[in-house]
Design a protein around this nucleic acid. Structure first.
Length: 235
DNA sequence: CTGGGGACGGGGCCC
DNA sequence: CGGGCCCCGTCCCCA
């Protein structure tokens, strides 16, 4: 949780995926992120600050996101990736309609507490944005795209880390559904969604509750089942 | 509560 | 080394 960019949270148009690993800073209790440290300009740049190896990560808000337009345009934080596929969206651009506030549990924090520069140390490369560690420079650069979000939808201005993510998003505007189910007439814009759909045709469901042996077509359904409190006895 | 669809993210692999 | 793609996964919403 090293990225401090609270400003994004207060925007009327929130990033579509916002990770909040902490709302308050243990080092400055009561401070709801970003207002005490790092300095505002530091936040705006999406930079990180040093964390001593082995110490707890810095506890501010982590906002990581497919951002948003206005939230990113003001900070000029495109240091790494000058290769945007299009210009930054103007504030007047229409927003993506399905703007749900999403929390992503995954990617909830850095995997190491390392220096704040994308330096190589002991054979590893570290992201200067979140201090994640990668074994190769290529992997690091790929990861950094998730911070810089160079692929911007020309229709709504939503930004993505990879071109194919943008293409998938564009289908939400065009209505294109290139992935058809061979067993029924349904078609999907997203291959993963087709895969999930195919599960519904299967008799044997892949995900089984270890307590009640109920089976589910998707892991998320099993998780929901477990989270809702499976009280059944094992079969 | 469950099942399913929609939208999306990221690592890894291949070219 | 970078782009494209696959796979696996999450989260949200709704019926």
């Amino acid at each position: 949780p090293l990225i401090c960019c609270l400003s994004a949270l207060s925007l009327p148009h929130r990033p579509s995926s916002v990770h909040l690993s902490a709302h308050t800073c243990p080092l400055s209790p009561g401070a709801v992120t970003g207002d005490t440290f790092p300095p505002a300009e530091h936040c705006a740049a999406g930079l990180v600050w040093d964390v001593p190896p082995g110490s707890a990560p810095h506890p501010h808000v982590r906002v990581e996101t497919s951002i948003s337009n206005s939230s990113r345009s003001s900070s000029g934080d495109e240091e790494e990736d000058g290769g945007r596929t299009s210009d930054p969206p103007s504030p007047e651009l229409p927003r993506c309609q399905p703007q749900r506030s999403k929390r992503r549990a995954r990617d909830a924090g850095p995997r190491s507490s390392e220096p704040s520069h994308p330096t190589r140390r002991r054979g590893a490369f570290f992201c200067k944005h979140c201090a994640r560690e990668y074994g190769t420079l290529g992997a690091l650069k790929m990861h950094i795209r998730s911070h810089t979000l160079p692929c911007v939808c020309p229709t709504c201005g939503k930004a993505f880390s990879r071109p194919w993510l943008l293409r998938g998003h564009i289908r939400t505007h065009t209505g294109e559904r290139p992935f058809s189910c061979p067993q029924c007439s349904r078609a999907f814009a997203d291959r993963s969604n087709l895969r999930a759909h195919l599960q519904t045709h299967e008799r044997v469901k892949r995900y089984q509750c270890s307590s009640c042996s109920r089976t589910f077509s998707r892991a998320s359904l099993l998780h929901k089942h477990a989270a809702s409190g499976c009280t059944s006895l094992p079969v």
